[in-house]
Simulated assay, not measured.
Amino acid sequence: MTDQNTPRLLDFIGAFATGGLLTLMVWFNGTLAVTGSLLFASWVPHVTGSLLAIIVLLAMRPKKAKPTAKVPWWAYLGGISGAVTVMLTSATMNSALAISGTIALGLAGQMVFSLVADKWGMMGLPQRNPTVRDMLALGLIMAGSVILIFFGGV
């Protein structure tokens, strides 16, 4: 019997596939920003995703859920931050930073936010203080990002 916390091969494959799709998305959005504008590059994936979600929902016809609690106001901010993220990654994609620096900055930002969320128990997560291993991983990601951004084009 395997331990619940041991990583499985499928987990690694899923993580690499997701990273590959993210890289392709940033590349496509950067191309859209060149041919159109940053706003256009943000609208295309959001409209496409919304249409696909509507089609899937219509095809699956899920049962209507009865609301048990009122949704907090901040839950609606994800769309705004997503649109701004797409616009910023599209802008940096077409600069000297290119796709590598853009992905590195995104990874660094995710790591910082995850440590903050753990520290203060945000979004219902259990509170957990960052370990030395967490801080070492963050330091390596930040160092790699700095090297990519400032010395990658040399």
Rank of each mutant, 00 (worst) to 15 (best):
F151A: 14
P67L: 13
I149N: 05
L125Q: 14
S81T: 15
S37E: 06
L107C: 06
G101R: 00
L38A: 09
G153I: 07
S114W: 02
A96W: 11
M60V: 15
T18C: 12
T6I: 11
H46C: 10
V84N: 11
K119V: 08
P130C: 06
M135Q: 07
G109E: 06
K66W: 07
W43F: 13
P67H: 10
S95P: 03
G30I: 00
L24E: 14
A108P: 02
M87V: 06
V86D: 03
R61V: 09
L38D: 08
M87P: 01
Q127H: 08
L24H: 13
G36M: 01
T68R: 14
L10N: 11
L140Y: 13
A65R: 12
A75M: 08
V44G: 00
R8F: 05
A104D: 02
A65Q: 12
W27G: 03
L10Y: 13
L10K: 09
A137Y: 04
F113I: 10
F40H: 09
A75G: 04
G109L: 03
N5L: 13
S95V: 07
D11Y: 08
M135C: 09
M111Q: 04
P45E: 07
V34W: 14
V47H: 12
F28S: 07
G153T: 11
T2M: 13
A15C: 10
A69P: 01
N29V: 00
V112I: 12
F113L: 14
W73C: 04
S100C: 01
T48K: 07
L32C: 03
M93Q: 07
M25I: 05
L140C: 14
K70P: 01
A17F: 09
A69L: 10
W74L: 09
A75W: 06
G20K: 04
A83H: 04
D3E: 11
M123R: 04
G30V: 00
L22N: 06
V154Q: 15
S42T: 12
A59F: 09
M122D: 06
A41H: 01
A65D: 10
T85V: 04
A117S: 12
L105Q: 02
V132Q: 12
L24Y: 14
A98C: 10
I149V: 15
V86A: 03
T92E: 01
T48L: 09
P130R: 01
M1A: 07
M25K: 07
S42R: 01
S114Y: 03
T131Q: 08
Q4G: 14
S145F: 07
N129S: 14
A69R: 10
F40Q: 06
W27C: 06
S37I: 03
T6L: 09
A41V: 01
I141W: 01
A104S: 07
W27Y: 15
L125K: 13
A117H: 01
I54R: 02
V86N: 02
L88E: 08
I149Y: 08
A137V: 10
G78Q: 05
G109T: 04
Y76F: 06
A83F: 11
T68E: 12
G78T: 03
G49A: 11
L39W: 15
D118R: 02
F150R: 04
Q127D: 06
L32I: 03
I103M: 09
T2H: 14
G106W: 02
G106D: 08
T6D: 15
A83N: 08
R61P: 05
G30E: 00
G19D: 03
T2L: 15
G124T: 02
G152L: 00
